[in-house]
Design a protein around this nucleic acid. Structure first.
Lengths: 352, 352
DNA sequence: CAATCCGATGGTAGCGCTGTCAATAATTGT
DNA sequence: ACAATTATTGACAGCGCTACCATCGGATTG
């Protein structure tokens, strides 16, 4: 296969058709709609393609057909592990399909997002995956006018542009807080960084859960718009401790912050969970490995990517999902860092 | 800008040319080679483009010109932080250029890589970035026949396909071992997972450094082909400890393993660096935040991405680099986890 | 001042494929 | 058995752009 290609480098559909003894258009149909061909022609074209090592010219195809086989994916970050997992799901499930993923990074800027969507519109993608539900009005207009399937990922909400796959950050945070409250903690701090829309909603979940328990106190909250790092977790925790020394738990909007808090506690000889419960968010790998292991909220990121791309491809090909909004939920994974004080055996915490 | 576009959606170069009062080909030149136009025409076309909100049809351009503005990037993993950083560099530096990044994931399989390169060849990319120097013979042939700039990243070696940006994993590992030896350690274990070619070269650096010191001992080595996780670091370390209880240091081929070792030591009450020195690789963020902080080898991943894409774009546009191989080096970042026993003040290690 | 050159511009002819619709062959119903 | 229908197939035109070469002033030269 592919032998003759290197020889001349000029295998067009016409050549394939000639070898197969059919018209070019029939050969073309072999790729786009093979069922429309009779079995004999299909086989003839198939072997001609293989024999010549024919590779379609995508540019010509796009020009003639007025569509591309590109699916755009707009995410806010390339380095955030959360999106890496989603992307892996997207790429894994797009392989084997005819579609190509075109990645674009907004760096958490909705203006940048708008710009990228404008670029995508120019390319007439076959489908689009965008992160979140907080687009600018203009972005939304672009998305709606794009005339291709669009899936919003990472969260769910009313009024999807088209389809959605995600979960409720609000509920997830609420669940985490409920759990902490159940463990008998009362002064639950909130640590937040890079307060993007999804983190905002986690905050709201925290806030309402605390208010419902009549335990809300602004002094329990420390946030920053700075991007998350592990080190920052330690810093923010130090601030929180200075501001409100009597905290007995911390809810971190992500696991990196939580790990930073854990390390800071080790430095300060604060026993976890004896003195303080820690709960993170996302359930990254290290939460299970840490000593003590860290309670976190598992979000189904890989599956989110898989579903998102599958929904888009299905929609492109006319198979629209029954329900446009898919809630993948979350799971609270309870680990040592948030166990009830009495539950923890002496010796299971810290280096001890 | 872009007003009329939404109205009819049919702004072609011809329309722009008409409005500007020039021929279509002149308008075309405005994009590809603006210097060739007289100032007056250039301005006329420019304002016509803006007025009409003209957006070039990339498919038509590619079909007519026999080239694309796609730069392919082939990496082995999407979730590995190392590549996330490289990618960020690539994307950051490609923005603002006319080129589009096309990402492909080999999942550490050189056969998959070969397949992907074949796909890329069909697309006639403007340039290509591939990971490492261990391509199959067929892949190499494809790369060489591709007739576009190619940059190999992550490591350097003799006989680049075209250009290279990276560093010597062998030297980096050697430097790490030298450092550990200088700290007075003698029984230095080696922990390796996902033994990809670059990890292999780190192993060789370790092996030769140990042999040079007459300290090489196969019992010091534990490796697996399983992908790296933090948890795995703990497991491998447990194996190593069972196999060779008298180790006084561990060199881990990456930081995740190192963190896993650290956690495992916390569990087993092994004091770091008192009982054991730990050295990781890559200098991920958590190495500095951990307690104790973990010595690691910093690799300039973001810069690698930036340089790689810049070199490719420059080469596409005829500005070939003076030297095709760029060594970005590495820096050993010494932290608490590998300090000489006597150097460490009591109390600076572990939770204590 | 003719011969030459050069920079700026335009005309022509596709790039390789597919949409549309017509034409033909195979199948069915009554 | 013959019209009506349905599966297959093909002819034609053109998607929007650029490569290639021709053209045409005007500047340069001897």
């Amino acid at each position: 296969m592919g032998r003759k290609q290197t020889k001349s480098g000029k295998i067009r559909l016409t050549e394939v058709a000639k070898l197969a003894g059919v018209s070019p258009i029939t050969a073309s149909r072999f790729f786009r709609n093979p069922e429309a061909l009779s079995l004999s022609k299909r086989e003839r074209v198939d072997s001609a393609v293989k024999e010549l090592g024919y590779v379609p010219n995508l540019a010509a195809r796009a020009l003639a057909s007025h569509r591309t086989e590109v699916i755009g994916v707009v995410i806010p970050s390339l380095t955030n592990n959360v999106f890496a997992d989603v992307l892996r799901g997207i790429y894994d499930s797009s392989e084997g399909s005819r579609y190509t993923i075109q990645l674009a990074n907004t760096r958490y800027s909705i203006l940048q997002e708008e710009k990228l969507l404008r670029l995508f519109r120019a390319q007439k993608p076959a489908g689009l995956i965008v992160t979140g539900i907080n687009q600018t009005a203009e972005s939304r207009t672009i998305l709606e006018s794009m005339n291709c399937p669009v899936t919003q990922i990472m969260e769910i909400g009313d009024s999807p542009v088209d389809m959605m796959v995600g979960f409720s950050h609000y509920d997830a945070a609420s669940a985490a807080i409920s759990h902490i409250l159940e463990q008998g903690r009362r002064r639950i701090g909130f640590l937040g960084a890079r307060m993007d829309p999804r983190v905002q909603r986690r905050f709201e979940g925290y806030r309402d859960a605390m208010k419902a328990a009549s335990l809300f106190d602004p002094n329990l909250i420390v946030t920053t718009s700075v991007p998350t790092t592990i080190t920052l977790g330690g810093t923010l925790f130090a601030d929180l401790l200075a501001q409100t020394p009597d905290i007995d738990a911390v809810f971190c909007v992500n696991d990196d912050l939580a790990l930073g808090v854990l390390f800071e506690c080790q430095r300060r000889q604060i026993s976890i969970p004896g003195d303080l419960a820690i709960v993170g968010f996302n359930d990254l790998e290290f939460t299970a490995a840490a000593v003590p292991s860290i309670t976190s909220v598992r979000t189904n990121r890989y599956e989110m990517g898989r579903h998102a791309i599958t929904m888009v491809i299905d929609a492109i090909e006319g198979r629209r999902p029954q329900t446009p909004v898919l809630d993948l939920g979350f799971q609270l994974v309870v680990r040592e860092s948030s166990m009830r004080q009495s539950t923890v055996m002496a010796g299971s915490v810290g280096i001890d």
